[in-house]
């Protein structure tokens, strides 16, 4: 299964007025890998994620996901592809009028004719898999803490057992224990479910703990991709300062040079 690109982006250009966010950007995401996307604030990480999942129509370029050209596909084909992907937004983006369980059930209810008790049990299973206590299912998003909202958002993203999981800053705003637990959760879920994960993050610890490969977004394109070890060797100044800064040394346990 390794070596097959499940997402392949070619010549992607995103323009907002006169601001060019991406220009001729190309990137491949392989099946089963966890790809970390890093870049300075404003380098277009979120725009890239939004382009892939179809929330943003790029100015030019081609995006192929799970063998479908998502930009040229019909609405039905698009929907079929998006049923095989899950997205977790930065703050969970839970539907505030529904309980956590109803949130997790929502995608199943929408797509499959499964009886209500089974749906509820499957939702409970997802809720428990992401490490939320069983009582959390009956709570409304407004009464959850930030970390719980993120977990609930992940549970909803997982509810259709997706092949590709998009995560936008999953550990931002979590305490270090919560963030490490989230990393461990991501690893175990990724391994057990064979997930492909597209991870936008700033968290060096998460990068180190979870990512198979890292893509650096800068100068409107993907500057370099490679494993963590390869990143440390890159000469480019921005990459150097990112992976050799004081925070990086703290995260990787290396000596500050």
């Amino acid at each position: 299964m390794e070596g097959e690109a499940v997402i392949s982006i070619r010549g992607l250009t995103n323009r907002f007025g006169t601001t060019v966010v991406h220009e001729d950007l190309s990137l491949d995401v392989m099946r089963g890998e966890v790809l970390g996307v890093v870049g300075a604030s404003g380098s277009g990480k979120s725009v890239l994620l939004r382009s892939i999942v179809g929330l943003q129509t790029p100015s030019a370029g081609q995006i192929t996901m799970l063998g479908t050209d998502v930009l040229g596909a019909s609405a039905a084909d698009r929907a079929a592809v998006s049923a095989r992907t899950g997205v977790m937004f930065q703050d969970g983006a839970l539907f505030s009028a529904l309980t956590v369980r109803e949130n997790v059930e929502a995608p199943i209810r929408e797509r499959l004719a499964i009886d209500a008790p089974t749906r509820a049990v499957l939702a409970d299973l997802r809720i428990s898999m992401v490490g939320l206590p069983p009582e959390a299912g009956d709570l409304y998003p407004a009464s959850l803490s930030g970390g719980m909202r993120k977990r609930a958002g992940l549970a909803r993203a997982l509810s259709l057992d997706p092949e590709i999981l998009f995560l936008d800053e999953p550990t931002a705003g979590l305490d270090p224990i919560g963030a490490s637990a989230f990393d461990a959760l991501l690893n175990s879920l990724g391994e057990a479910l064979g997930l492909t994960v597209f991870l936008v993050t700033h968290d060096l610890d998460t990068l180190k703990a979870t990512c198979d490969r890292i893509a650096v977004l800068a100068q409107r394109r993907v500057l370099v991709t490679g494993t963590m070890a390869e990143m440390l060797e890159v000469e480019e100044p921005w990459v150097q300062s990112y992976f050799h800064g004081p925070r990086a040394h703290a995260a990787f346990g290396t000596e500050a040079g």
Partner: peptide
């Protein structure tokens, strides 16, 4: 092995029984 891992993960996460509301 992958299926086994999945089965074990799900088993560990099985809810302790549906709460009766």
């Amino acid at each position: 092995p992958a299926q086994d891992l999945l089965l074990r993960t799900v088993e560990a996460a099985l809810p302790p029984g549906r709460m009766v509301r």
